[in-house]
Amino acid sequence: MVIMLILFYSIISVYFFLFLADRSKFREYYSSLLCISYLRFLEQYLLVYVLKVWEYHHLPLPLAKVSGVPILLDVTFYPMVGYLMIHYSNRLLNKRMIHYLIWGAILTFVEFTMVWTGMLEHQKYWNFAASFLLAIATVVIIHGQYRLFLKNKS
């Protein structure tokens, strides 16, 4: 189940970047793609190794032994999510709030699939409400850095 999930998310993201994404936007969205991947690394490091509230199980050997955490998804699937998040963002404040909530829910759902398949286990005080808040914070940071990146664009 876990390997199937990793393969499923990886394959759809590779397919997306090869055939569906607008390549002319890659330079403009670069910081957003980098930022979401960076935030995922940070979350993994803090939650798995420092706070120890996340624990991964049943990872395929190369991922489990070398990386310990599913880095593959952080460099394939999550950049795709970052791309879509910025591509379909809205400049109107009230619509942006709904946008944050929707993408927060999507990210939480992705985490739910990881928990459901047994790949990820929440420990101690961590639950899906915390995941949802973290997901919204991630979405807000992605949008904030994108606006900063385009500031004073020459």
């Binding site: 670069y30 910081s31 980098l34 930022c35 960076y38 850095q145 900063l148 990146f149 385009l150 500031k151 004073n152 664009k153």
Partner: peptide, 8 residues
């Protein structure tokens, strides 16, 4: 705005 992605 130009250099923060490099730092990141």
């Amino acid at each position: 705005p130009e250099l923060f992605p490099t730092a990141m």
